[in-house]
Amino acid sequence: MNGENRKAYWALLAICIIWGTTFLAARIGVKGFPALLFMGCRHLIAGLLLGSFCLIRKSKMPNLRAFKAQLLPGLFMVTLGNGIVGWAVKYIPSGLAALICAMMPVYVVVINLITGKSERMNYKIAFGLLLGLSGLLLIFKDNLAYLGSTQYLGGIIICLLSCLFWALGSLYSKQKQSEYNDVYMNVAMQLFSGGAVLILASYVIEDWGAIHGVPLASAGAISYLILFGSITAFVCFHYALSRLPVGVVTLYAYINPLVAIILGFVILKEAITVYTLLAFVLTLAGVFLVNAGYRKQSKPLSNASAIRIKQPSYE
C-alpha cells in the first residue's frame, strides 16, 4: 500500500467515526435549545466557512444563477433531509435515528427503479427490500411502549421522511448538474441556503423568546458539527473517493449506525436491546443487497449517485 492509499484509508476511517458521532452531537446540542435554529446555524455557518475557504483557494465566485441552482438541493437535502433530523433526535435516541437514516440508499434505489426506464427488479433487490422492511418493522416493535407518545412517534416519522427528501434531492442534483463545476462551492451554497431556510422556519415555528443564552453543551456540539461533522468529514470523504473505489468508500454507511448506537449507549445511556441489534443487522444487510442488486443493472450506479447515497446528513 503506497502513502497516498494509506492516507485515503485514514480519511475513510475518519469518516466512519465522525459521521457516526454526529447524531449524538446533534442530540446533545438540541437539548435546551431550539432544534431547527441549532441545525440552521450549524449548516449556515459551515456553508460560510467552506465557501470562504474555496474563495481563499482561488475558486471562482459563483453567480446568482449558480446559487439558484443549489437552492432546491439545499432545501431537500439540508433543510428537509438533514435539518429536521435535529428535531427528531430531541425526542428519540440518537442510535435509533442513525439506524433509520441508514436506509437512505434503499430510498435512492427504489426511486430509481420507479422512475428509471432501464432499471429492473432482481432477486437481490427484492430480498434486500424485504430485509430492510423487516428491520424497520423490528424498530417499531422495539419501540411499541413509546409509540403512544406523539413526539416519539413523530421523531421516527420525521427520520423516515428525511431519508425520502435526501434521496429526492440527491437524484435531482445528479440529473440537474450545475454549470458551476466546483463541488466544494456547490456544497457550501447548499449548506448556506438550507441553513438559512431552517433559521427562517425556526423563527416562525419555535419560540425564540425562551432563549436566554446558549448552553455550553449546545455551543460545544455546534462547534464540533461545523468543524468536523460538516467540513472535515466532507473533505475526507472526497479525498478518499478520489483514491479508493467507490464501493470501498461507501462502506462507511454500514459503520456509522453502529458507532452512533454504541456512543448513545455509552454516553447517553440509550438502551440497546436484542431487537435493536437484529434490526441493525437486517437493515444494513438489506441496504447492502439492494445496492448490490442495483449495480447489476445494465445502467450501473454512477459515482455521482454513490456520492449522494453516502450522506444521511452532510454529517
Rank of each mutant, 00 (worst) to 15 (best):
V110I: 11
Y91C: 09
I111C: 02
P73R: 01
G116L: 04
G95A: 09
L144I: 15
S149N: 14
V109Y: 04
W87R: 03
Q151K: 14
Q151T: 15
G74I: 03
F140Y: 11
L129D: 02
N143W: 03
L113Y: 01
A98F: 09
Q151R: 13
P93G: 02
P73Y: 03
I125C: 08
V106D: 04
Y146C: 14
I111T: 09
P93T: 01
C101S: 15
T79V: 02
Y107R: 10
A145K: 15
M104R: 03
A145R: 14
I111E: 00
N122Q: 10
N112Q: 13
I139V: 12
N82W: 00
S134E: 00
A97L: 12
G74V: 06
L80T: 12
L72V: 08
V106G: 08
E119L: 15
I111Q: 04
I111G: 05
F140W: 10
L131E: 09
I84H: 10
M77C: 02
Q151G: 00
I92K: 08
I114H: 10
C101K: 13
S149P: 04
K117T: 13
K117G: 13
M121I: 05
G83N: 04
Y146H: 15
W87L: 05
Y152G: 11
Q70D: 07
F76D: 08
L72I: 11
M104I: 05
